[in-house]
């Protein structure tokens, strides 16, 4: 095992193209270090981002929130303005794990790790976030909903680093996120959903129901067309075009898809009846 510890971004990007092979970037370590001693790390090279200057920023401007490559969930929870501007980010940050995880886990790591259960990705996706990728050659910005290509697969090339996440500021008339884990605190998502509505229309994203966190575009289109629902089953039949849940150690495909549609149905029903139970 070898650790590369650059102190500036240019050096970090250069190390990614060294001929010895591509190192694994590591920031908060909350995914990479799980059962760390049981891993065979002899031939692994890590690119430690913890000393790279300027990666922990959290900049809220009139137009956007910019999240740095090493910005943690806790950083956002503590940044009152950002948390207020993007309440689903704050909510996701609190749901992602206990405080001991929030202080270490990073937004960029949540994307880079590519887990289909990622809670941070869910919130960022319904806010229309984009991922800023940088290499020694170029800098490019990819919409988060086009970033993933499969289970733990993405458009990020080995020489690229996620250097920032840009979340545009829009006026939202609806923002909602729900996570169902095996218990109320610090549980990996069995199914999660987030929805926003702005002048650009509805955005719906779900986690743990597909190989990666995904948008539910069929449902979005129906909502944008003004469709209303009289049963969870109607929501589910639309979602079947958007998601493909699996059965694993944590839950079943049937449970995931059914609960997803029920969460959405009842939340939309509450919208129609503002005086009802919320």
């Amino acid at each position: 095992m070898k650790v590369l510890q650059p102190d500036n971004l240019a050096e970090a990007l250069r190390l990614l193209v060294e001929p010895d092979g591509t190192p694994v970037p590591i920031a908060g370590g909350t995914d990479l270090c799980v059962h760390w001693p049981a891993r065979d790390l002899d031939n692994t090279r890590f690119l430690d981002l913890s000393r790279v200057a300027g990666l922990s920023r959290l900049t809220l401007t009139h137009n956007a929130l910019e999240i740095g490559a090493r910005t943690t969930y806790w950083d956002l929870i503590c940044a009152a303005d950002a948390a207020k501007a993007f309440p689903l980010l704050a909510q996701a940050a609190r749901l992602v794990g206990a405080i001991q995880i929030q202080t270490r886990g990073t937004w960029a790591g949540n994307i880079a790790n590519g887990s289909p259960a990622a809670d941070g990705v869910l919130a960022m996706m319904v806010y229309g976030a984009s991922v800023v990728l940088q290499s020694v050659r170029e800098t490019r910005e990819v919409p988060l909903d086009e970033f993933f290509t499969g289970y733990k697969q993405s458009v990020r090339r080995p020489d690229e680093l996620i250097v920032a996440i840009r979340v545009p500021r829009r006026a939202y008339t609806f923002e909602w996120l729900a996570k169902v884990g095996a218990r109320r605190a610090q549980a990996i998502s069995k199914v999660g959903v987030a929805m926003t509505r702005s002048e650009n229309g509805w955005r719906v994203a779900a986690n743990s129901v597909a190989p990666h966190v995904c948008r539910c575009r069929t449902l979005e289109a129906a909502l944008n067309a003004g469709r209303t629902f009289t049963s969870p089953q109607e929501v589910r039949s639309l979602l079947s075009a958007d998601v493909a849940a699996i059965t694993d150690l944590r839950s079943t495909a049937e449970y995931r898809e059914r609960v997803l549609s029920r969460l959405i149905f009842y939340r939309l029903a509450e919208l129609d009846k503002p005086s009802g139970h919320v």
């Binding site: 799980v34 059962h35 095996a182 218990r183 109320r184 605190a185 610090q186 549980a187 990996i188 150690l249 944590r250």
Partner: peptide
């Protein structure tokens, strides 16, 4: 037992 991790074998937290 196949789910031999605290992440997959769920015991109650204070919040549950």
């Amino acid at each position: 037992m196949a789910n031999t991790q605290f992440a997959n074998y769920i015991i109650p937290t204070s919040n549950d």
